[in-house]
Nucleic acid binder design. Structure first.
Lengths: 218, 218, 218, 218
DNA sequence: TATGAATGAGTATTCATTCAT
DNA sequence: TATGAATGAATACTCATTCAT
């Protein structure tokens, strides 16, 4: 509240300012990704959209990949929020699982570029060493957090921890595969609705869970 | 049979030589994809690996994308062969479906770069107009052919055409999603074996098919 | 009529065949120039339009520039024909001069690409040494021949040889300049009609000639 | 006046420095044009002569054509200066017209490459869309400004606006044609002096003007 | 904290030409 | 007489990144 308080405030303000600029850049990057796709998302383009010089970004980020990584992180955070909010109104475990899984699917169905981002960064489209362990773990954590409601619902339905994890993988994998088919237009090849298929899959998982849980109880 | 035969032979040889060169380049391209990934697969890199000048490739291919497309085509052809061969020894429909699906999965599990290729080309990572309708349809056809054994087996198990198609999509999507998790190392996150999960999924599909087929019969 | 006659015939035919192929190529080149302009007139393009491989042209021509030169030569020949034919029906020297000059102008007004060709080849847009003395002189001769009717008419109007030459240069230069303005659209800058201006100029030359010729006679 | 003045100075210096670099590049481009001609004036060549990397030019110019356009603009500016200065010492309208026209002619007689530039850029040797309307108009304006003294002198000699414009076109076209003949060596064909012919032409224009002006007065 | 300036490596593609066949 | 194959040099332009200021 005196000097040190003032310093703190100043530091806080300073940090906030810096953070704001990062925010600005990241938002610009997100926008570029959305409109231009991955190929068009050059540092120059991002900088331009943010109202900066390319060189200026290097004060806020170590490299282009670092920007990418953080954009992905935010994307995962938004995904997490969306899933969490969707599940909020549901009380029954079955509905919670279904809703959570479909929210996950819906997010990427509506935001194909976010899926691209994930594909790109989670794969090798990057510098030799990738993002670095630290970043990688942070991303993993964000993804896990987004999927937690599914796992929780599975547990609520009587699954053990390990079994719940498998349900999650199953939903995740299935959703991802369907989304790929959806966004590449390949799903038309099979004359199928991606989201209907996803719902089917989820419901089958739920049924299986119930079955095994009943069996365990008996 | 003599002179004209000689001419024919020469023409044949010429064609064969040209084909060999194409082969050489395509093999080089495949190799570059495998070791350098998609981003590193520039025309010069491919040319260099093939022992050619970049300009020389343009004698054999119209563009870089044309090379890409053909490499993908071959990849799909190899996939098709693998699935077809795997299914050859199986007579029972259940086993045929399971084997076919697992062969599909196995191919991409062992050849991650082929998966990359498919992702890349089937998505928008290409020139504005993509590969052109013709090429696109050829690729679709090759993919469909590779998946046919799965559909056939489903039909043999009593599925109608449309239902069989859904089984295929289901397997395809699930496999794709699991492969993505596998190749990005994300599957460890869930402490799961991709191929075991795939097998589970397939068997569940088979069980569902049998169930509905029995119901229909009754 | 016997052996040597047969040989002659064969040789003639051979020469004719070769000539025909040259013709074919030159016509292709002309067509390419006309539709694609100078920049688009690559050897490959010319060869393609002629139904040949680029390499094949080297059997008939020494270089790309040689093709250009011959196309220009033919262009000048056509120009010559046009002027000569236009003048054919005129008997009166005044009308002959006017008609010849306007035919020259008209040819290039209607065939802008031919003007381009002349500009390009007569200037430095070529290999260090240009076309070689021989070719250059041939082109000069063709141009001179095309302009001869103007000179002749001037002489018929009483001009000495040297004076007649000046009339030719004057018409040639004026036409060229106007054509340049015409084909670049710059003439609109001055709200003027190129061909009307040309006619004015020619008539002024004629008047001047008459004046000086009358003076000389007196 | 201190801090803000310093900032201004810095900004000024910055702008000046940038301008200097542009100047450097443009001068290099001009030099390349002069020694290598248009065909040899590649970006790399210009960059090399300026002591730069090709990429560096893109910091100062948007494209190769932008460099071309600016070089041409400067060329026209120099032309304008030359004409304006030549006319400065003349007071009598007749002499002003003659001097202005001959200065125009003289400029291009002495700087053939500037003529080339004009030919190239004013014609279609450019990107599909040319230089863009804006640039095109700026170039037109520069050319018009250079020719204005001729028009003004014609008006001073009693010509109406439209008639003056025609005099300008006439001189411009004639000069251009003669210059073409001159620089291609074709004028020797006619054993004529280009500048003498130009002077003749101009004087004839002046005489005509006087004549019509006298007639109008009477 | 940001910019202006620059780099060097890279991109796909085109060109005229050559040569063995 | 013609081709298929290849070359080497060239083209304009883009990129992520660096550094002095």
């Amino acid at each position: 509240m005196d000097q040190s308080g003032g310093a703190k405030t100043r530091r806080k303000r300073g940090r906030t300012k810096a953070q704001e600029k990062r925010e600005l850049i990241l938002e610009a990057a997100r926008a570029v990704f959305e409109t231009e796709g991955l190929e068009g998302a050059s540092l120059r383009a991002i900088a331009a959209r943010a109202g900066y010089t390319p060189a200026a970004l290097y004060f806020h980020f170590d490299s282009k990949e670092a920007v990418y990584a953080e954009v992905l992180h935010r994307s995962l955070a938004r995904l997490g929020t969306r899933v969490a909010e969707a599940v909020l109104t549901e009380t029954e475990p079955t509905a919670r699982l279904r809703t959570a899984a479909m929210a996950f699917f819906g997010f990427y169905a509506e935001n194909p570029r976010d899926l691209d981002l994930g594909f790109y960064l989670f794969r090798g489209g990057m510098k030799p060493a990738g993002l670095g362990r630290e970043r990688d773990e942070a991303l993993n954590a964000a993804l896990e957090a987004a999927l937690r409601p599914i796992a929780d619902a599975a547990v609520a339905l009587g699954a053990e921890k390990r079994q719940a994890a498998l349900v999650v993988v199953d939903c995740f994998a299935h959703a991802t595969g369907l989304l790929l088919l959806l966004h590449t237009g390949r799903i038309r090849m099979f004359d199928a609705s991606a989201s209907a298929l996803m719902l089917d899959h989820v419901d089958r998982q739920i049924a299986a869970l119930r079955h095994s849980s009943n069996a365990a109880r008996a």
